[in-house]
Amino acid sequence: MRKGELHMKLTMKVNGREVTGEVEGRTLLVDFLRSDLRLTGTHVGCDTSQCGACTVHVNGELVKSCTMFAAEADGAEVATIEGAAAEDGTLSAIQQAFQDHHGLQCGYCTPGMVMTAASLLKENPKPTEHEVRQYLEGNICRCTGYHNIVKAIMAASGQEMPAMAAE
Results as ranks from 00 to 15, higher is better:
residue 10 L to S: 04
residue 12 M to P: 01
residue 12 M to D: 05
residue 13 K to S: 15
residue 13 K to M: 13
residue 14 V to T: 08
residue 14 V to D: 05
residue 15 N to M: 07
residue 15 N to S: 05
residue 16 G to N: 04
residue 17 R to N: 05
residue 17 R to E: 14
residue 17 R to D: 06
residue 18 E to K: 14
residue 20 T to V: 09
residue 20 T to G: 11
residue 21 G to R: 13
residue 23 V to N: 03
residue 24 E to D: 08
residue 24 E to L: 11
residue 25 G to N: 11
residue 25 G to K: 15
residue 26 R to T: 03
residue 27 T to F: 02
residue 27 T to Y: 02
residue 28 L to A: 12
residue 29 L to V: 00
residue 30 V to T: 06
residue 32 F to A: 14
residue 32 F to G: 08
residue 33 L to E: 05
residue 33 L to T: 02
residue 33 L to W: 12
residue 34 R to P: 01
residue 34 R to V: 01
residue 35 S to D: 15
residue 35 S to L: 15
residue 35 S to F: 14
residue 36 D to E: 15
residue 36 D to W: 02
residue 38 R to T: 00
residue 40 T to W: 08
residue 42 T to L: 06
residue 43 H to R: 15
residue 45 G to K: 05
residue 48 T to W: 06
residue 49 S to W: 02
residue 50 Q to Y: 09
residue 50 Q to S: 12
residue 51 C to D: 05
residue 52 G to Q: 12
residue 52 G to M: 12
residue 52 G to C: 10
residue 52 G to Y: 13
residue 52 G to K: 13
residue 53 A to G: 00
residue 54 C to N: 08
residue 56 V to H: 05
residue 58 V to K: 08
residue 60 G to P: 02
residue 61 E to S: 11
residue 62 L to T: 06
residue 62 L to N: 07
residue 64 K to L: 11
residue 64 K to C: 10
residue 65 S to T: 04
residue 66 C to W: 13
residue 66 C to F: 13
residue 68 M to Y: 06
residue 69 F to T: 00
residue 69 F to S: 01
residue 69 F to I: 00
residue 69 F to R: 15
residue 70 A to L: 13
residue 71 A to G: 10
residue 72 E to S: 14
residue 73 A to V: 05
residue 73 A to H: 10
residue 74 D to A: 15
residue 75 G to M: 13
residue 77 E to L: 01
residue 77 E to A: 11
residue 77 E to C: 02
residue 78 V to Y: 03
residue 78 V to N: 03
residue 78 V to E: 03
residue 79 A to Y: 02
residue 81 I to L: 03
residue 81 I to W: 00
residue 83 G to L: 09
residue 83 G to N: 07
residue 84 A to S: 11
residue 85 A to C: 04
residue 85 A to Y: 01
residue 86 A to T: 00
residue 86 A to P: 00
residue 87 E to W: 03
residue 88 D to E: 05
residue 90 T to I: 04
residue 91 L to I: 02
residue 91 L to E: 02
residue 92 S to W: 07
residue 92 S to Q: 07
residue 92 S to E: 03
residue 93 A to F: 05
residue 93 A to D: 14
residue 93 A to H: 10
residue 95 Q to N: 05
residue 97 A to M: 07
residue 100 D to M: 06
residue 100 D to I: 00
residue 100 D to F: 06
residue 100 D to G: 03
residue 101 H to Q: 14
residue 103 G to R: 12
